[in-house]
């Protein structure tokens, strides 16, 4: 199986002296949805941002396919970034642009300035955009301004923008932390379905252990900048959660998942 993403000994120390990541290594070699769980401040956001270099790592290696991300110059980095779609907690849409323009901004890495300035994207780009809007349940919203949408709708636009890039990898940062429980489940389901449909791996930072267990194929536990667990969703036990988050009564969290597994088995 070919390697899609290989991270070796990744370290990040912020100028303040905070060690966000200390020697993180893992490999994603098949199109699976990987949840990254861990307490606040464990380095989840930093890890994801070091992959597309919104944050510059201090040392280590990030391989996307055969590309050594950390050694790229700015032009090469732009080319690499368009292969990585990113989805954010606060959606991060450009509020005064329409839904369509927000989707098209996913194509910016592929076209020249004048093409994008005149909004003269290819017919295929527009066709893809309308298809995506339909897929995420926002048909007819193309001319709506992003600031007129609800949280769940905005996140659907955020997902579509990332997919417009036709990425090889999805980086997802707390996609549900600003949403209500029902919308959270719908958004998680949508992300996971789209990742599987397109055979595209995804790294998902997520607070909610229940959601991670319900939707993701693999879970990486991050604590104080180090990986303390890396395994399939089934391997999560009370002991594992104690290793990641510290001492707490985890019985209710685990039991909920076992029930869901039983339901799934029937």
């Amino acid at each position: 199986m070919s390697i899609i993403l290989k991270i070796t000994d990744l370290t990040k120390t912020y100028p303040t002296g905070t060690k966000a990541l200390e020697g993180v290594s893992f490999t994603v070699d098949k199109p699976q949805v990987v949840a990254i769980i861990g307490p606040s401040g464990a380095g989840k956001s930093t890890l994801i941002r070091c992959i597309n270099r919104l944050v510059e790592a201090s040392s280590g290696e990030v391989l996307l396919g055969n590309t050594d991300i950390l050694s790229l110059n700015s032009r090469q980095l732009r080319r690499a970034r368009r292969q990585m779609g990113m989805i954010f907690q606060e959606y991060n849409l450009v509020e005064r642009l329409t839904v369509m323009e927000n989707l098209l901004s996913g194509r910016l890495g592929y076209v020249g300035f004048w093409t994008s300035y005149r909004r003269k994207f290819s017919k295929k780009d527009f066709a893809d955009a309308f298809e995506l809007l339909e897929r995420v349940g926002l048909s007819g919203y193309q001319n709506t301004r992003a600031d007129a949408l609800s949280g769940g709708e905005r996140q659907r636009v955020g997902i579509s923008r990332a997919l417009m890039q036709q990425p090889d990898l999805l980086l997802v940062d707390e996609p549900t932390a600003s949403l209500d429980p029902k919308t959270s489940r719908q958004i998680m389901r949508l992300i996971v379905e789209l990742a599987h449909e397109r055979g595209m791996p995804a790294l998902v930072n997520i607070h909610d252990v229940g959601l991670a267990q319900a939707f993701c194929d693999r879970i990486i536990g991050l604590t104080a900048g180090k990986i303390v667990f890396d395994g399939s969703t089934r391997q999560i036990t009370e002991q594992v959660l104690t290793d990641i988050y510290g001492e707490e009564d985890w019985s209710s969290t685990i039991r909920k998942i076992e029930e869901e597994n039983e339901v799934g088995a029937e």
């Binding site: 597309n52 919104l54 732009r78 080319r79 690499a80 970034r81 368009r82 990585m84 990113m86 954010f88 991060n92 849409l93 450009v94 901004s105 996913g106 194509r107 910016l108 890495g109 592929y110 300035f113 994008s116 955020g158 923008r161 890039q165 980086l171």
Partner: peptide, 9 residues
């Protein structure tokens, strides 16, 4: 951050 992450110039 979001627009930079798309690979925009």
């Amino acid at each position: 951050e979001a627009v930079r992450a798309t690979g925009a110039g």
